[in-house]
Structures are given as C-alpha cells and as structure tokens.
C-alpha cells in the first residue's frame, strides 16, 4: 500500500469501521466501541489482570480513540452492563520502517469469563476494524514470560514477525 492509498483508506474507512462495529455475539454479549462509563470497569479489570492500576493511561487512550480521524480503536465486550473484556489497538505507519499495520496494544478478559470466546471475539472485532481501515497486517508485542497471552495470540494465528525487540538499561 502506498502512502497515498493508505491516507485515502484512512479517511474512507475509519468512521465506517467504528460505527458498524456494535455486534451482539452468539454468547449474548455485545462487542462495541468503549464509552466513557466503561472506563472505570476497564481500569479495574486491567488492574486485576496486570496488578497495576493505570487510570490516567486508560483515560488518555479513551480520549485519543475519540478524536476525529483517530486510528485508535478501543473496544469492549459487555453483557448487561458488566464488562467482560476490552482491547486497544491502533493503526501505525512507517515506524521502525514498517508499512501501515494494526497494532494490538492490550487485550484483557475477565478471568471469570475466559474460555467463552470473549478474547477471540474482541480480537476478531479489532481485525475487522483494521481490515476495514485498509491494513492487512496486525502486530503485537508480548512479554516473553506471559505464556497465557502468547498462547492466546498464537492460537489466533500470529507468528513471529520480521522485527526483533531490543533494549538496554541506561547507566545513571
């Protein structure tokens, strides 16, 4: 995809992807874009799963996802007002020399709602957003010891990509 094609796709598809999203799943929960009242439950579920509350981070991500022309997608799975899961993704282009692709930054499912396809349905919905926005590649980054999360993404079909993540500690 060229730069021009990418920007045309971005203008044409991003709104359609979001507004066509709300969908009642066969398991009687809804996958839709996150609304402000969901935020507390997202913060709470994320804190339960990761052990670190990050209310400011999630508020910023929510606000970014609501900016006009935003390529961020903040989706939730909800059943009768109860948050079952959430996912956050964004289309990013040209960083690390990469063609436009959809990054999945986070996915979380209520431990009591696991093995009910909530994670898979959220993943599918995010893929639909990316696909409708014109990108054909998705990426994520996972801690090497996060076996459950890595197994989840592997089961969705993700394989190692052409990039290797490197890091170092800065000397003080």
């Amino acid at each position: 995809m060229s730069v021009k094609q990418y920007h045309i796709a971005r203008i044409c598809y991003s709104a359609a992807a979001i507004f066509n999203l709300a969908k009642v799943m066969p398991h009687h929960y809804t996958i839709r874009r996150a609304n402000l009242p969901d935020l507390d439950q997202v913060v709470s579920l994320d804190a339960r799963v990761t052990g670190t509350p990050k209310p400011e981070y999630w508020r910023q991500r929510f606000e970014s996802s609501r900016q006009p022309g935003s390529q961020q997608y903040f989706l939730v799975a909800e059943q009768d007002g109860r948050l079952l899961g959430f996912t956050l993704g964004e289309i990013r282009a040209w960083e690390f020399g990469s063609q436009p692709c959809g990054w999945i930054f986070a996915i979380g499912v209520d431990p009591e709602a696991r093995l009910e396809r909530v994670g898979s349905d959220l993943f599918d919905a995010m893929c639909r957003c990316f696909r409708e926005a014109g990108v054909t590649k998705i990426r994520t980054m996972i801690a090497r010891d996060a076996q459950l999360v890595m197994s989840f993404f592997r089961s969705q079909g993700l394989m190692a990509g052409p990039f290797v993540q490197l890091e170092m500690d800065l000397e003080s």
């Binding site: 090497r144 010891d145 890595m150 197994s151 089961s155």
Partner: peptide, 10 residues
C-alpha cells in the same frame, strides 16, 4: 518461550 506458547491445537 516460543515452544511453550504453541499448543497442540494451535
């Protein structure tokens, strides 16, 4: 990490 994340089902 790779081998422990790939189940038989995957």
């Amino acid at each position: 990490a790779t081998l422990s994340s790939i189940t038989v089902d995957t």
